[in-house]
Computed example of a mutant assay.
Amino acid sequence: MDGLSIDVVGEGAPVVLLHGALGWGAQTFAEQYVLADTYRLHVVDRRGYGASPHQGAVGWPVDVPDLLALLEQLGGAHVLGHSYGGVVALMAAGQRPDLVRSLVVVEPPMYGISDHPEAQSLTADLWGLAERAPHQDGAEFFADWADLVLGLHPRLVSITVNGWSDLDRIAAEATRVEAMPLDPPVDWDGVRRVSGPTVVASGAWPPENARAATDPKRLRAAAAFRETAREVAERLGVPITQFDASGHNPQLTEAAAFNSLLRRTWG
């Protein structure tokens, strides 16, 4: 774990929080720091993101060993993974369920495991993006990625890029080069051996406006996230936990309800 940036706050049972693509730890889990009143939070910047330097490979091939090393150091912990971080959490839990006290994953983008047509369509387009990515800069890649994965309107993409901080640029570059998470090698039997509760969460992706309610790419993005989360929940034999007022970030948009879920799970 040399060089890995981990923000450690609070006292109590250990919790590890893993962010997804196009973000970093403190940004993704800004609303979860209040839980440090009861738990010892380890908010990780995955390699290549935030304050964790880029050292060769980026993505689950390095993230999973990092997470397992941290869990071994802590003697086990509760694990929360958002988006790509959820993929990493599932892979690590499958390998060492004895180190995971409970597992919460939010919309892991492993679309390749779902037979749903929207997930399969997005999977094909993302493999195409992976072929283009080496020839793009961070902003060009983000425009393609946001269009496919989130169904964002080009005008919103432009506004977002114009407002980027240095950390945003770092995150875009890391996402451009990290390993695709579409069909990773998860040991599902291992994940089912996690001794504590397992929660699979998803947003309902309500439309923000009339355009979002009818835009084909937005609808595909929403369906792909929801249906993939349902497939993960089905493989693990747990009900899906849906946040009706949220899209991909219920930990931010419905923070009070999400944090109540975490307290129940970790308690």
Results as ranks from 00 to 15, higher is better:
G81R: 07
N249L: 14
S83I: 08
L148Q: 11
G196H: 07
S246L: 07
W60G: 10
S114H: 04
D7P: 02
Y84L: 08
D7Y: 09
L4I: 09
W266P: 01
V191A: 04
L35R: 00
V88E: 12
W266F: 14
L167D: 13
V157K: 12
P134Y: 02
V106E: 04
G151A: 02
N162D: 15
D183H: 14
Q120C: 04
D168L: 07
R155F: 06
S114G: 05
E118L: 13
E234W: 09
P250R: 01
E131L: 13
Q73M: 11
F142W: 02
E234N: 15
Q242W: 05
V157I: 15
A77P: 00
V9P: 00
L167S: 12
E254L: 02
H116I: 00
P109Y: 03
W266A: 02
A146N: 02
G23K: 04
G203Q: 02
P134M: 10
R47A: 05
A256V: 14
A36I: 08
G85I: 01
L261N: 06
V200G: 07
V43M: 01
D2W: 13
P14H: 00
L22F: 13
A133N: 01
P108M: 12
S83C: 08
R40Y: 01
M180G: 03
E208P: 12
V161Q: 03
N249E: 13
Q27T: 15
G151D: 03
R176N: 08
A222R: 01
A51R: 15
G128S: 03
F141P: 03
G48C: 06
G151Q: 10
E173M: 03
T175V: 09
V161F: 11
A201H: 04
A119Q: 05
S202E: 12
A224Y: 00
R263L: 02
A179F: 09
E131I: 11
A13M: 09
A69E: 05
S202I: 11
Y39H: 12
W205A: 09
L122P: 10
L126M: 13
Q242E: 15
A21P: 08
E234G: 12
P184H: 12
E118A: 15
P97S: 08
V34L: 05
V58D: 00
E234C: 00
D137N: 14
P216C: 05
P207Y: 04
F142K: 07
Q136E: 14
P97N: 05
H42I: 07
Q55T: 15
D168N: 11
D2I: 15
E173I: 10
E107M: 14
Q27V: 15
V199P: 09
V34Q: 11
G76Y: 06
E140S: 11
L74P: 04
P239V: 10
T160Q: 13
L219M: 07
R220N: 09
N249Y: 14
G81P: 06
A51P: 11
G3D: 09
Y33I: 00
Y49P: 03
G59W: 12
G85E: 14
G267Y: 00
T265M: 05
P216I: 01
